[in-house]
Structure formats: C-alpha cells, structure tokens
Nucleic acid binder design. Sequence first.
RNA 1: GCGCCCGUAGCUCAGCUGGAUAGAGUACCGCCCUCCGAAGGCGGGGGUCACAGGUUCGAAUCCUGUCGGGCGCGCCA
Length: 586
Amino acid sequence: MKHHLSQLLSEAVQTLQSHGDLPADLSIKIGLERTRDRKHGDFASNLAMVLCKPAQSKPRDLAEKLVAALPDSDQVTKIDIAGPGFINFFLSPAAYHATLSQVLKQADRYGRSNLGQGKSVQVEFVSANPTGPLHVGHGRGAAYGATVADLLAAVGYRVHREYYVNDAGRQMDILATSVYLRYLDLCGEELVFPANGYKGDYVWDVAASLHREHGDDLRHPAAEIFADTPADEPNGGDKELHIDALIQRCKDLLGTEHYRETFDLGLDSILENIRRDLEEFGVHYDDWFSERSLTENGLVESAIQRLKETGHIYEKKGALWFRSTDFGDEKDRVVVRENGQSTYFASDIAYHMNKLERGYDRVIDVWGADHHGYVPRVKAALSALGDDAGKLDVLLVQFAVLYRGGKKVQMSTRSGEFVTLRELRQEVGNDAARFFYVMRKCEQHMDFDLDLARSQSNDNPVYYIQYAHARIASVLRQMPDRGMQWDSNMGEQNLHQLTESHEDALMVNLSRYPELVEAAAINHEPHAIAHYLRDLANDFHTYYNAHQFLIEDQALRNARLSLIQATRQVIANGLKLLGVSAPDSM
RNA sequence: GCGCCCGUAGCUCAGCUGGAUAGAGUACCGCCCUCCGAAGGCGGGGGUCACAGGUUCGAAUCCUGUCGGGCGCGCCA
C-alpha cells in the first residue's frame, strides 16, 4: 500500500524533471507517512516542502504540480494539498478490502516480505560466560536478540543465530578451581573457600558429579592446595592473586588430563543448563561457537599475524599491543600478555574476523550496555584487518531492574544473589517475560514490574492482547451451536458493508502491519511490535463492545467475521514474532 | 576528568527519516453486563517535552552548552 503510493510520487517527480520543473540531478528519498489524523487522509507526503528549494518555488505551488503529475490509481479516491504543503492521500475502501483479503489469504505469511532480498545476517546474542546459570539481565538480551533475529527473518534476510561460548580464559579457570575445591570438601577436606570463587549451588552439583565418577581418587590435602598461596581478601590480601595461585596449584596437582576433565565437567553441565533454559524460553540457535576452538584452530594466532604484517602491532613492556588508537579508539590494547597468553580481546578479534570471512552481508552483536566501551576496539580491529567495520552493528541492551511489591529487587553478583532467568520464567511465565523484555526500546533502562507481569488483569498488556485473540476464537467457536458458519467468500464479497468507524479503524491498523514489521526489523526495534499489538487489541475490544458479530444478517455477519478473523490472524502473527503464544482460550 | 546512553502527564513509557492540535497504559473521578468472555468498553481532569541557546518554511526529534540519573574507562572476561 505504502510502496504503491511511493511509486506514484516518484513517477510524478520524474515527470516534473522531464518538464524542467525540477532539476534532473536530484537524489531524494520520498517521505511518506501515515497521517496521525484521519482528516488528513491516510498517507501524507512532505515531498513538496522538501523539494521547494531546488524547484525554486513555493511548497504549495510545487505540491499542485506534483499532484497534477501523479498517475491515476484505483486505490486513491482523493488527493488534497493541506497545511504548509502536505500532499494528502485518501485511500479507497476497496484498497482496505484488498488488504483484508490479503491477510486471510496469506494467513501466517501476512507481514512477511522480501525487503532483505535473501541477504545474510548473523546475529550473536546472549553469549553469557558459562560460569553459572543465566540471570534476568541475560534474559533481556535473549528476548531482544531472538526477536530482532526473527524480525529480520520475517522481512527476507537469511538469519544465522549464534551463541559465542566463552569456554576459555581465566573466568573458566576460576570455575574449574571452584568445582575442585567443592569436590575436596565433599571428600572431607576442610578448607576456606576463596572470596573470588563461584559460590552458587550449581558448583556443588558439578563437584558431586566429579565425586561420583572418581570417588576420592583426585583428592589432595587442602593444606597442599593452599600452601604458600598469597592471602585472600578477608585476611587482608588480594583475592585476585589468591585465586590465581589456587588455579595454578589445581592445574599442577590434578595434571593436564584431570584438570581438563574437571574444567569440562563444569563447562558442559552449565552450558547444558543454559541451552535448556533458552530452549524453554523459545530462544533457538543455529550455532554455539566455541572460543576455545579459535585458539585450537590457530585463528587467534593468524589474526595477530595479520595485524603484525600490516604494522598495527607493537611490543611494549613485554606485551604485544594493537594500535587501535589509529582507528579512533581511546587507547591501544594488549592482545598478548607479558606471560604469553593472548587476551580475551585477541579471541574477539579472531572471532569477528572469522564472522566476516564466513561471508555474512551483515553482522549483529547484541551486548549488555556495560560493554559499550568495547565497541570501538572491535571495530578498530576489523578496520585494521582490512575488513568493512560498517558491516558490524553492535546493539547495546540496557539493564533491567526488577520490582516486586513496589520495591527494587536487590541483586549483586558478588554475593551470588541474583534472580535467575529460570526463576523469572517460573514466576511470571514465558509469555509475560518475553513480552515485557521487548516492551521497551533497548537503549532504555527498564523497570520490570514482576507483580504486573504476573497479574492476570487488565493492567497486564500481555493478557490484554492475548484476551483479544481468545475472544475472537471464542466467537468463532460458538457458531456451530447457533447453526452458523463463516463463509469466507460471502464475507469477502460484502466487505463494503463494513462502514462503522470501528471497522474502519481496525482495517487501517491491519493494513499498517507489514510496514510496521519492516520498520521494526530494519531499526531493530521489537518494541514497536509490542505497542502495535496493544493498539490493535484495543481497536478490537472497542469494536467488540460496540457491535455484534453473530447476527442474523448473513452478508454483514460474514463480512464482520472476515474482519475479526483477519484481526485474529495479525495478532497471532505479531505475538509469534515476539515469541509469545496466542491462546484460543485462557 | 574523559566517553557512551537516558531525561516527555503523579508513575511506567510511545512519539516512525525533522511535520499538522504531543499520545498510550496506570493511578484518580463518573458511567456501561435481560447483549458473542467485564481479563472488556465509554467519558473526565492531568504537560514549561530537564534547562538555555542555535540550525529552518517547521524542532520532543538535529547541533552546542548546562543540570540531573545510569554505565564504562585492566596485560579481567
């Protein structure tokens, strides 16, 4: 619908150009918007105002010329020039009837398009360290990333969803060490657990598995582990130095093989937990990309090599530095430490290099906003490697703060007191969780009201929308008892009988849906879908209260049934995009 | 100190690439079920779009500065 009008305008511009009313070398985008006020028609274009300068004419004069040059269309009944020079389009009822038929015909495909033309895009999201269960902060990234991916898929991109598994590095060593210390505890050793270790219950679970497999075979006296280690924080020492020493001691005492086994046991069980959690949340991946594999396949090495060859690496204080300041970063960054170990950043360079080498047209990273300072250096690295950093979009998701009983739910990673995603899902349900997470635009801090999400009341937007869907389903269910059935052909032939203002409003909103999905996909804004659905549900509830559907007049009845059937369809399609169910009864 | 994000109704938030009289929900007040699901609908009050400049036909939207809130500034990941 919008594309059609856009096309008409662009033809009009060409006509004026050929007449010399407009310069030939214009590069303009056609501005065309839905009107806010129905009095201004259905669509409005500001084209005449934008072009009045190059045309050297008054906006309204130019508007008249443009309108005169517009080709005829059976979808348009009237074109007005209004205000400072808006061109207002009034669409014919037939245009709306056509979209209604389209909704019914295309069913769950209505709203999909080929905007992306099959271009490939990789979306990496969540990618939480497998050192513990997902918490509510990850939940927002999960819901957001999954929806952005689904939106892009809906408008014709080939989407590859990926989770980057940080299965290497110091945090994982801390986990492995934590597991081993809990194992020793289970063996009967008495020890003081390090301040910087992972204290969650899940660590005990992994330790128990280790103990089941090996009994006391891996046991070493606690005294031996802790001998000569630097003091821990509670004893006035440095918790980082303390844990590092413990890691080293564990590696030495366990030996490569058993250390690796302990490490992998923790990794696998936690990763499995994360996988299951996300699956249950309706978040699916095509790939779980291992950070460790980067090193094992020499990708980190070759990335650094490439940077060296192009002169972007220098040595200072025994470490290797990437001169990211050449590409706009605040300071240069270490890629290989003094101790010879490559940094997390080095892995990330290799990972992003690999992403682009895989040939994606676009690459999207969804990160927590606390990582925003990291963006320039990753882009710098891609530029230094000669890749197109513009292909990478980093979407930053702000934190979500939980409220229960009107009070902020306190969380701190330090004490291990955080609400897990699983707990949240159990408390409010998957539907409410998915919906609430994407209700706000991602750069907006979010107050997540648990009581509201859980409440089965009109306050809760999820139920409000689902209720509209269930109500329609309920109406359709009751037809057989009244000896009625929906005749879709008769419905379509009588759409002209839908003359009530409620029906008009509903049809307008249904026709907006494809435009909305496209905009939401391109701008990575799932919240637009959430707001739209609320709006659409409102249109329906209003209609429902004002008019009857199951009436004697067959022609009108079938027309109305077609309308609400189409409404049901669009609500279902929209909810599907958000990962929310559309129940027939509730 | 520097950088990024945010500041719109009492509260939570929309506001599309700069467009016409700034909108929802909630809370508050008043109405609507012999009627397809009242988990609903209708009406009402409520605004210096943080503040001050600038850009232009036009600014909540873009630019600069100030104030307020969040986050980040490791040879951690």
